[in-house]
């Protein structure tokens, strides 16, 4: 059951709060890992399938917003639900802009919190999915020979076969064969699909 609900990382310097939140989230079937400081959290964090972070903004040493920044820079995909003692609009704007799922004010109603946590889990699942798709595409991209890769770049840039052949100093027919192999290896049917795929992999603009 916990596998389906996901793991909630809890971070609050107040032990009482930590305990209460753990009880609520556990009762709702989430796996909870609680930490009282950002330091211990960072040390023991391991990526999980479906997970999110419920984070108290006001923490000594490393604040919630600082931690969010740190995680983003490290490329950690972990949706964050912020909790704060006092609702501070500029702070919440900053958090949301930086990708937070929600910004809740304590005392927080259980329904609001659970809704936000479920939304975060949803986002986590999506992120995972998208990440695994991208990883598959990268694998395909890696399976292209250097020549095929060259041809693909020109195709995506919108050049005709003839132009590509003259650029690469080879026959138009050879280009055609390469192009068909690229389409097949990357698993697309049309040129439009290939261009979208290249964009997703960040190849589009040189």
């Amino acid at each position: 059951m916990s596998a389906t609900h996901g793991t909630v990382f809890l971070l609050d310097d107040e032990l009482g709060m930590l305990k209460a939140l753990t009880r609520l989230l556990t009762a709702e079937g989430f796996t909870v890992r609680a930490f009282t400081s950002a330091g211990t959290f960072l040390e023991s964090y391991r990526a999980e399938e479906r997970s999110c972070l419920v984070l108290d903004v006001a923490m000594p040493k490393l604040s919630g917003l600082d931690l969010q920044q740190r995680l983003t820079h490290a490329g950690v995909l972990l949706p964050i639900v912020f909790l704060t003692g006092h609702g501070d609009i500029p702070m919440s704007v900053q958090a949301i802009k930086a990708g937070a799922v929600d910004f809740l004010t304590k005392p927080v109603n259980d329904a609001d919190l659970l809704r936000a946590v479920r939304a975060a889990m949803q986002r986590s699942a999506e992120q995972r999915e998208r990440a695994s798709e991208t990883a598959k595409l990268r694998e395909r991209l890696a399976s292209l020979t250097p020549r095929e890769r060259e041809v693909m770049d020109h195709v995506v840039a919108g050049q005709l076969n003839k132009q590509i052949a003259s650029d690469l100093g080879t026959g138009e027919h050879t280009i055609k064969v390469h192009r068909a192999r690229v389409m097949q290896k990357m698993g697309v049917e049309s040129l439009a699909d290939l261009v979208r795929l290249a964009e997703r992999l960040g190849l589009g603009n040189h």
């Binding site: 009482g16 709060m17 209460a20 009880r23 003692g85 304590k106 005392p107 927080v108 109603n109």
Partner: peptide, 9 residues
């Protein structure tokens, strides 16, 4: 606020 929040949760 802190104890109140803990009590509610």
């Amino acid at each position: 606020n802190q104890p109140l929040a803990i009590i509610l949760t």
